[in-house]
């Protein structure tokens, strides 16, 4: 390939890399050192670490993201496992993916009806004798809806890992006398751990930033890092503080990726 044509391919792509990958990241870092009036300062970071509110909010956000991830994992692993055993698994998988093509806002909107005080869930609770409860605008409703939205993103990578797993390992383990639980615990689960890890990556990071759900479903009871960023950027216009929280979110994201990415690097090394 001549140098000229290579350059021709590279120009639009590198422009994108410079203006939309590198520049925004640098700018958000840069902005985090400024006050509302545009003065250079370290005060944003100071406020973040010294006032208990921000730290408590961060811990809270991480805690909710953790709960969402655990809940999705508990539901998704068995689903992916059973899905892998069905006959037309590609078709079923497509049906799992289909709901992700529906706009997230619409799904959140549906839950406003389902969880409302006269909604179906409350009808059911009344029917079994518990009586109507306030579900909408509580942290439980936020957890449930976030889990609902993230489930397909957890199922997909686990399903892929299970599909790649050679079924003869499972049979060998059974032949050697391991029972179902042992086979799962010592053979199947460790070998699909990479899928679980990428699932956690795909669920945990977005869970830290789901600001529309906290507003529509959580009734502002749960404040995630994403909610705080949105609040600072679009409501109070304090971009400096918003960027500071953004930098914290980026650091959290990098941490998660380092924690869940080890195995992949090794694999790449082998190749």
């Amino acid at each position: 390939m001549t140098k000229q044509s290579k350059l021709f391919y590279f120009i639009p792509y590198s422009l994108w890399l410079i203006f939309f990958v590198a520049a925004p990241l640098l700018l958000i870092f840069y902005q985090s050192f400024f006050t509302v009036e545009g003065q250079f300062t370290l005060a944003n970071y100071q406020t973040y670490f010294e006032s208990g509110t921000y730290l408590r909010m961060t811990v809270n956000s991480v805690w909710y993201a953790f709960l969402i991830t655990v809940l999705t994992l508990l539901i998704s692993y068995p689903t992916a496992y059973l899905l892998n055993k069905t006959k037309h698994k590609q078709l079923w998988l497509l049906l799992i993916i289909l709901p992700t093509w529906i706009n997230l806002l619409l799904k959140a909107y549906a839950f406003i009806g389902i969880f409302s005080i006269n909604g179906s869930v409350n009808d059911f609770l009344l029917f079994i004798g518990i009586g109507r409860q306030q579900i909408l605008f509580t942290d439980v409703s936020f957890l449930l809806v976030a889990t609902y939205i993230e489930i397909p993103f957890m199922i997909l990578p686990i399903f892929n890992a299970l599909e790649e797993l050679n079924p003869s390992y499972e049979r060998a383990s059974r032949d050697l006398g391991a029972n179902g639980l042992d086979t799962f615990r010592r053979v199947v689960f460790p070998l699909t751990l990479n899928g679980v890890k990428s699932g956690i990556q795909a669920v945990f990071i977005p869970s830290l930033s789901l600001f529309m759900l906290t507003r529509l479903i959580g009734g502002n009871r749960v404040i995630t890092l994403g909610t705080a960023i949105e609040q600072h950027f679009l409501v109070t216009q304090d971009w400096g503080m918003g960027s500071t929280i953004g930098v914290v979110l980026i650091v959290a994201m990098l941490l998660i990726m380092v924690l869940t990415g080890e195995k992949k690097k090794k694999e790449r090394g082998h190749k």
Partner: peptide
């Protein structure tokens, strides 16, 4: 891998 909020906020600054 960046969360939407980060992409949105950083593009807004840009």
């Amino acid at each position: 891998v960046s969360p939407d909020v980060i992409i949105g906020a950083s593009f807004l600054i840009l």
